[in-house]
Amino acid sequence: MTVHHLLEKESIANKFVAQLRDITVQKDRLRFRRNIERLGEILGYELSKSLRYGSENIITPLGKVKMSLPEEEIIICSILRAGLPLHTGLLNYFDDAENSFISAYRHHPNDNEQFEILVEYLASPSLEGKILILADPMLATGSSFVNVLQALETMGNPREIHLVSVIGAKQGIEYVSKEYPENSHLWIATIDNTLDERGYIVPGLGDAGDLCFGPKLQH
């Protein structure tokens, strides 16, 4: 897997990530969602540079011009619920993409720090031969991305897989890199070094789903 780390170079994306992390700013859910959406747009733009393009003639009011336009069939699949703002940002740029949605959440069967990732909902068109973009703002242990890949196997074989995330931990990225096909790509804004004993990213930003949409009922 090829990892594309956005904040290796300074850009306006630094501001959006800083606001996502800031405990005073992140209380504003609208801004929190919008900042994830903005990062989805930026990461989508960077991702677009890796796609295949073909030439088309475009008619203007004053003549004709040859333009390079994307040739790919793209499917954006977001991991519910935290993936929705990121999905929106990607869809703002890949506005003719097909859409897929899948649930993946942490289940604590023994009411302790040990958890498993459960996938209980999937709605998707065929992935066969297409570009699959998987969107989840948090890449902590990597288990969600791996379990989602397994769940999507029944939908066909994509030509290429691109993971899009806002923040990840090195441990999770290493795990995902081993489990995904070699020609896959990860587009990520920033990477932290550590996971705590509960499997949360440190320093991270907290629970992205709760910060976007409010606390959820516990299973």
Rank of each mutant, 00 (worst) to 15 (best):
residue 1 M to Q: 03
residue 2 T to Q: 05
residue 3 V to G: 03
residue 3 V to K: 09
residue 4 H to V: 14
residue 5 H to C: 12
residue 7 L to K: 01
residue 8 E to K: 14
residue 8 E to Q: 13
residue 10 E to Y: 04
residue 10 E to C: 05
residue 11 S to F: 04
residue 14 N to R: 09
residue 15 K to D: 13
residue 15 K to I: 14
residue 22 D to P: 08
residue 23 I to F: 06
residue 26 Q to I: 02
residue 27 K to T: 15
residue 30 L to E: 15
residue 32 F to G: 06
residue 35 N to S: 10
residue 37 E to G: 06
residue 37 E to H: 06
residue 38 R to A: 11
residue 40 G to N: 10
residue 42 I to N: 06
residue 44 G to P: 09
residue 46 E to M: 06
residue 48 S to M: 09
residue 49 K to E: 10
residue 51 L to E: 05
residue 53 Y to G: 07
residue 53 Y to R: 11
residue 53 Y to N: 06
residue 57 N to R: 08
residue 57 N to E: 14
residue 57 N to I: 08
residue 59 I to T: 11
residue 62 L to I: 12
residue 63 G to K: 05
residue 65 V to P: 04
residue 67 M to C: 09
residue 70 P to D: 03
residue 72 E to A: 07
residue 72 E to L: 00
residue 75 I to P: 07
residue 76 I to V: 14
residue 77 C to K: 01
residue 79 I to W: 01
residue 79 I to Y: 01
residue 81 R to C: 13
residue 82 A to K: 04
residue 83 G to T: 04
residue 84 L to R: 02
residue 85 P to R: 03
residue 87 H to E: 12
residue 90 L to I: 07
residue 90 L to N: 07
residue 92 N to V: 00
residue 102 I to C: 11
residue 104 A to I: 05
residue 105 Y to N: 08
residue 108 H to M: 05
residue 109 P to T: 02
residue 110 N to H: 14
residue 110 N to Q: 15
residue 113 E to M: 10
residue 113 E to R: 10
residue 119 V to K: 08
residue 124 S to P: 10
residue 125 P to M: 00
residue 125 P to I: 01
residue 128 E to Y: 01
residue 131 I to Q: 07
residue 134 L to N: 03
residue 135 A to N: 06
residue 135 A to E: 07
residue 138 M to Y: 04
residue 143 S to K: 13
residue 146 V to M: 13
residue 146 V to I: 15
residue 147 N to F: 01
residue 149 L to A: 14
residue 149 L to Q: 12
residue 149 L to M: 14
residue 154 T to C: 12
residue 154 T to Q: 15
residue 158 P to C: 05
residue 160 E to F: 02
residue 161 I to H: 00
residue 162 H to P: 09
residue 163 L to C: 10
residue 164 V to Y: 05
residue 166 V to I: 15
residue 167 I to W: 01
residue 167 I to M: 14
residue 168 G to A: 10
residue 170 K to Q: 15
residue 172 G to F: 02
residue 172 G to P: 11
residue 175 Y to S: 05
residue 176 V to Y: 02
residue 181 P to M: 02
residue 183 N to R: 08
residue 193 N to W: 01
residue 194 T to C: 12
residue 196 D to R: 03
residue 197 E to W: 00
residue 198 R to H: 11
residue 200 Y to T: 04
residue 200 Y to V: 11
residue 204 G to H: 04
residue 205 L to A: 09
residue 206 G to K: 09
residue 208 A to P: 00
residue 209 G to D: 11
residue 214 G to D: 15
residue 215 P to K: 15
residue 215 P to Y: 02
residue 215 P to W: 03
residue 216 K to Q: 14
residue 217 L to N: 14
residue 219 H to C: 06
